[in-house]
Deep mutational scan, measured.
Amino acid sequence: MEVRTIKVFTTVDNINLHTQVVDMSMTYGQQFGPTYLDGADVTKIKPHNSHEGKTFYVLPNDDTLRVEAFEYYHTTDPSFLGRYMSALNHTKKWKYPQVNGLTSIKWADNNCYLATALLTLQQIELKFNPPALQDAYYRARAGEAANFCALILAYCNKTVGELGDVRETMSYLFQHANLDSCKRVLNVVCKTCGQQQTTLKGVEAVMYMGTLSYEQFKKGVQIPCTCGKQATKYLVQQESPFVMMSAPPAQYELKHGTFTCASEYTGNYQCGHYKHITSKETLYCIDGALLTKSSEYKGPITDVFYKENSYTTTIK
């Protein structure tokens, strides 16, 4: 009895394709271990004539594949690729409408935090270190965002349907971005203890939790000093293409032309909904596939993004 075979390709990165001759009487799992086709788990399936010449994702289970996976995804987590594939199996079914010149995501599976993050990423200057993220990001900007969303979920250790947080998501993504040249110098002034300067680099240099107003941050924000008295913390120097200011959701007025974009969060910790506000020729609110415009805006804002380049204080 002759062994019926077909020729397929296996890959971990969709760049390096490895030619395989597979036995049609055995499952993919018996031949390769966990195997995925377009995100779908085909591990328990036997090869079919229609699979001839198709590319299958496999887990990096030998040295060659491990090197290829690390170079593309910059992670050695053995569960990463499987999590990416199972997320992709959902995100490829989502709709990605162009809204006001940006790629958004039609609401499904509690994905409003991903839509808000995706919209924000198209408006701030950011370059990702893992080629996987950078490639998928370019495709997302062009309207094909399924891979990018699935990668975000995998890097953030999230599953489809789980509630997510924009600030946490951005923080994970910033860790995989090139923020080497970003720098922030802060000064804390206390009447009792004097003053202390701190220099922050990388992710810490672009994120701040405690106030939404970048102007206020430049002037000074009140913080408790270690001595128990009130101290003032203010920005001395900022070198970065953008800054992200966050605070627990509270009524906040966004003035046209003073910011790049913002995240609105309605609801409580267990259950809520994100919308995205962007400042173009007027203010726009993007909620999944829905767009509304207004000249002014007041609502429960939790993150505001500002364009920056270089700032030095005039406070002496």
Rank of each mutant, 00 (worst) to 15 (best):
V160S: 03
H48F: 12
R139N: 11
G143F: 00
R184N: 04
C227M: 01
Q270L: 11
N49Q: 13
K298P: 02
K158M: 05
M85A: 05
K307F: 11
L254G: 01
G288E: 00
K46D: 11
Y137T: 02
C261I: 00
I124K: 04
L118S: 04
N157F: 06
I277C: 00
E204Y: 11
V221S: 05
E204R: 14
Q237Y: 14
R83I: 05
A146M: 06
L114G: 05
T159I: 08
T312R: 15
D77T: 06
A140S: 08
V8E: 05
D135T: 09
F128I: 04
Q196I: 10
T260L: 15
T116M: 06
S25A: 15
D109R: 04
G272W: 00
V42Y: 12
T199Q: 10
L173Y: 01
V22T: 10
E253G: 08
L65R: 07
I301Y: 00
K298C: 12
T43Q: 13
K127Y: 09
Y84H: 00
I45K: 14
Q251G: 08
K183N: 07
T192H: 10
E264I: 15
Q98S: 08
E296K: 10
E162D: 12
Q30K: 15
K158P: 01
F217A: 13
S240A: 06
Q195G: 08
G202E: 05
K233M: 15
N309K: 12
L17H: 10
I277V: 10
A140T: 10
G161F: 03
S104T: 09
V22R: 04
P131E: 01
H176Y: 12
T169Y: 04
L37I: 11
S25V: 10
D62V: 07
G29N: 06
A40E: 15
I6K: 08
N178P: 04
Y57A: 08
S310V: 15
V166K: 03
I301E: 03
T232F: 10
F32I: 12
G29W: 09
L17M: 10
I152T: 10
D135I: 08
E296M: 07
N110Y: 02
L283A: 01
P300H: 12
L65P: 05
V203F: 14
S86L: 12
K218E: 03
F70G: 10
C149E: 05
D303F: 01
V236P: 01
G210Q: 03
E2L: 11
V236C: 08
L212D: 00
Y84F: 10
S171E: 08
E144K: 12
F128R: 04
L121M: 09
F174C: 03
